[in-house]
Design a protein around this nucleic acid. Sequence first.
DNA 1: ATACCACATGGAGTTGACTCCAAGTCAAGG
DNA 2: CCTTGACTTGGAGTCAACTCCATGTGGTAT
Lengths: 131, 131
Amino acid sequence: MFIGDVSKQFNIPADTLRYYDRIGLLSPRRQGGVRRYSEADLNKLAAIAKMKKLMFSLNEIQIILSADAQIDKSLQQASPDLSAAQALLSQIRAKLREVEALAENIKEVKRELARLAAKVKTVLEAGEYAE
Amino acid sequence: MFIGDVSKQFNIPADTLRYYDRIGLLSPRRQGGVRRYSEADLNKLAAIAKMKKLMFSLNEIQIILSADAQIDKSLQQASPDLSAAQALLSQIRAKLREVEALAENIKEVKRELARLAAKVKTVLEAGEYAE
DNA sequence: ATACCACATGGAGTTGACTCCAAGTCAAGG
DNA sequence: CCTTGACTTGGAGTCAACTCCATGTGGTAT
């Protein structure tokens, strides 16, 4: 797939895809100077998009993705690389705590917004009777 | 309160407080050129800090805070300003939808992270037996 | 041959939210 | 009187994540 097709399919500007290439987040092979996105590239991009929605920074995504890949690779060897796995696991746990804190915040904001909405509605109803 | 005290109490750099003043988010009165934070200012700052944690942009915070204040003011008048209330209400609803989408994402990320953690643990356990 | 694409590059510009700095003022302490 | 410390200002710098631009190349359509 060419960059334009990928851009359309994922609804991501081509410039952004080139940017991802530049920073080494997603670097497809070239054919005659032109980027060709493989099936694997598309899968990776899907993973990136998903994590982005989940508010990971591009940096975090990069770390997690490469650690994940490294683990997959080492799984096929006789002696898996435990340190990479350990590092990734603590990364994951940290993110999990972060996400849990966020979930708490979200509960709170929902209460706050509901409270605020109720107050606003009071004003609107008072306005109705006044007319 | 002086800027330094506020900075300490809220654990927010003085430069950030000055920045908030600059952009008109929180502009305390001056006494001889020096910022004096009133009780009301501190309450407002607390509200700002809270909303920040909830991932509102400073811009959103500003809009919501001023709409809220305007509503409070108009509540004390004979004819409340319904348009401000309407605007705020739709703002709130939009944010609520946003927050709900975020909550969904968070559920998903938790599943993802759990899945990833399980995979990593497999590697680690395999490593143990191999030793 | 010419026009028109989609692609390429390097580099500059943008936005939001700070963050840092140099230079200056002012009150209190030794 | 001089230093110290907390404050002031305007302006510049930083960071992430784009976003835009001028210029250039290579392939297809008329």
